[in-house]
Design a protein around this nucleic acid. Structure first.
Lengths: 350, 350
DNA sequence: CTGTTAGCGCTTTCAA
DNA sequence: TTGAAAGCGCTAACAG
């Protein structure tokens, strides 16, 4: 029991009657070892329950092949989906993934980054809390791919979803449904995603119809409670000012808003139509299935993984590398909350 | 750029005009080093951007102080909350956490376990896909704490929530609301959690009222679609067989069920009351805020971390260790879906 | 208080 | 096809 495993390569070598070099070859270049020897070694490993010491291996190699992934909120389906995409691609390429949740805490983000740096991981995918850390990759001396980050940076690979287009898509959909008094609800202007989505919506309204207007209602937080308070505010508006089409800046806000409106006997979509953002699992499961803008989070993760792996390989082989910024396009998922379709005909999602 | 950082302790030592031993002391036992020397060393570290190599450190130490956490579904709020609890306690104690999502794939669970073993982490917290892996800790030769696992095991520490009591609590609540025709919905009997919750409900009905009955409706999956199909089945039942109180075996099922019933113009809670399980964030945000049984997932994570850390310390100090199995008690969170309270008076959660 | 030194367990030439 | 040997970068024990 408790006695610390002290079995090392040497023990295996002794039992198998070979040298340590051969053990190493069995593991890393089996084709160099005679089948009989190989079998003997494998058997000895098995019998002794030897597990190779990754630290020693790395120390020799200078660097690990693992890739580190840091997201700012793992409880957000957007990021857990993204993580799945990363894992999928990494696993297929034989790389393991070390996942960290910074929980929107800059200290924890930094701690995770430090840890990965000390671990000498081969690459890092970072969905940062705040944008704008130029030269991070160079400072870390590790390939870094930024995920879900706003802005034009050319000093690292990056994957993101085009929030401006997302806002356009949402507002355009509402205009197409015949709405003219639109409102964007949720968040504060200092969140880049929020700004982009609002700007996109604004642009769509400007271009779409001279009669159309877009009001803006900020909420302290981009969550369910934010949506509830927005419902209260909207409910208190005089009829002729009240919007008929609302673009909620994320699905949490949309869900809170929907709940609040239903409670106030405002019919959705008949009195007010709602379009959310993210297409989280619960969007389709709401009492009135929620129209929303879907972000390709899984694909984002997959692509981010491909990009780090690519840069890692380039670095390894001493080949040149050019950073790539990739921007994904979100798509509208129309459900009942924004139309007069049969309520359940679109529950299944995109 | 790209040139691999090859700065090591030696470079720092040279620049600071001291030996490597002193560098090590500055980091690990600063009180042994003269303030002036310490400052000089720190400055040199800073200037060179040296980051200590964790592999080398571990190789020397024999073992890392990090703890590995493997959950079976990180997109499940239960596990992401648990992970937060773990991180919180580990960070406070100066330990880092390596998180893995097995995504319910036994191969990935095994791969993560292998990785952690190779990394020589100090301890592992495992929320396994399937229960019943006796002797895992011994085999791994690392302290292991099992989380959210059913059964009586005494060969490892374990934390779990009492599903039987959870089922009792849910059914008792429905009985107290005056319901006599109850139904447990969701999942198949081969899932231990499901069995326990059903058994608990069954026991409550048996003990609670001679007139009361409990039907059971299985669904293929324990998710929103499962709830939707249950709604279809229940909607098709003759009035005098149809249950008036439904216990959904988790909140996803409850949400799907609620959506399906509302679509079929079955009033909740007036025609049918619903109690879910888990108290995920969206339970309170449903059109009819959902009564549910809350699992103390954050506390579970915290306690799991305390237990591994305790066992790690005991092992370190050569002290004896006795495995502890701890079972948490879930609590009912009553909201509108099971009563005639004002719909929004209970939306805020527990 | 600081320097010296002996490995930790593995991989990888290079020889045999 | 296998063995021997030289480190990878760090820590800890000991000497000075």
């Amino acid at each position: 029991m408790g006695k610390r495993s002290t079995v090392s390569m040497m023990d295996v070598a002794a039992l198998a009657g070979v040298s340590r070099g051969t053990i190493s070859n069995v593991l890393n270049s089996p084709e160099l070892v005679a089948p009989a020897t190989r079998a003997r070694v494998l058997e000895a490993i098995e019998k002794l329950g030897w597990v190779r010491n990754e630290s020693a291996r790395q120390l020799r190699a200078g660097r690990s092949t693992a890739i580190g992934l840091i997201v700012r909120d793992i409880s957000n389906p957007f990021f857990s989906d993204m993580a799945r995409g990363v894992e999928e691609v990494a696993a297929a390429a034989g790389h393991s993934v070390l996942l960290s949740d910074s929980a929107r805490d800059p200290d924890r983000e930094r701690a995770a980054l430090d840890l990965y740096q000390q671990l000498r991981v081969g690459g890092v995918i970072l969905a940062p809390i705040s944008p704008g850390d130029r030269g991070l990759s160079r400072r870390l001396d590790i390939p870094v791919v930024l995920a879900d980050r706003i802005g034009d940076y050319d000093d690292a690979c990056a994957v993101s979803v085009d929030d401006f287009v997302g806002g356009q898509v949402a507002a355009t959909h509402l205009l197409e449904q015949g709405h003219r008094r639109l409102m964007a609800v949720g968040g504060t202007i200092d969140i880049p995603h929020v700004r982009e989505r609002r700007d996109g919506a604004s642009r769509a309204v400007l271009l779409g119809d001279a009669e159309a207007t877009l009001q803006v209602l900020s909420t302290d937080r981009l969550d369910i409670d934010g949506g509830r308070s927005a419902a209260a505010a909207i409910g208190a508006m005089p009829d002729d000012e009240r919007p008929t089409g609302v673009f909620a800046l994320n699905d949490l806000v949309a869900i809170g808003l929907l709940q609040g409106l239903i409670f106030r006997r405002v019919a959705v979509p008949d009195d007010i139509s709602i379009v959310g953002y993210d297409d989280i699992e619960f969007a389709a499961a709401a009492a009135v299935p929620l129209s929303t803008v879907r972000q390709p989070s899984l694909e984002l993760g997959r692509r981010a993984a491909e990009l780090v792996l690519g840069e890692m390989r380039a670095l390894e082989d001493g080949e040149p590398h050019r950073h790539i910024q990739e921007r994904f396009t979100p798509v509208l998922v129309a459900r009942s909350s924004s139309s007069r379709m049969s309520p359940l005909s679109h529950t299944a999602g995109a």
